[in-house]
Design a binder for these strands. Structure first.
Lengths: 84, 84
DNA sequence: AGATCATATCGCAATATTGCGATTTAACGA
DNA sequence: TCGTTAAATCGCAATATTGCGATATGATCT
């Protein structure tokens, strides 16, 4: 599931419109929750886990938390898998 | 742990000698168990799991089960991770 | 300040995974 | 055939993960 979310974040603008454009600050948690069809707490925890793993970054703007892929870190994981 | 085993199998000849050369038929379960320092049942289950996942192949010769990496399948996994 | 909206955290039940000992199956040699 | 060795399977306890509802925190607006 978290993997699916990570994939969705490749097209930030495929999410509904929001105050600040998604391709700039990331996708609002609310929208991620809606697409994932999980509870708010679960969505929040998913993103917290991804953030702890370094795979996404969080930009807070006012009351909104926006999440973006950390391409650098994701590529690093891919590289480390490639040498398995 | 299973990941570590998969890595060890890249150098089959780094394991102790066995009836049939490891680079031909794969590494005997016994040797994998010894290096992993787990029980026989656990080692057997690890390899069964890797085999179900398609990441290794098993060649049985007499009473010995030999395991080899399935480079094809491993590369496929790496590729699928790369597009995350 | 008080109401409201967005998110984070806590505690928990359900489920999955890990690794083991005991037992079973299978192949070999005397 | 009997004893031995190698490996697979069964059942289980310990631990980890998943996802939730309830609650707490924090920002915004009136």
């Amino acid at each position: 599931m978290r993997l699916a979310i990570l994939g969705w974040l490749k097209e930030p603008d495929s999410f509904p419109p929001q105050d600040r454009p998604a391709h700039e600050v990331g996708v609002c948690l609310k929208h991620i929750q809606a697409r994932a069809e999980v509870s708010q707490s679960t969505a929040s925890q998913f993103m917290a886990t991804l953030q702890r793993a370094g795979l996404v970054t969080c930009t807070r703007v006012g009351q909104f938390s926006h999440y973006q892929r950390n391409e650098e870190a994701i590529a690093a994981v891919a590289r480390s898998v490639a040498i398995c």
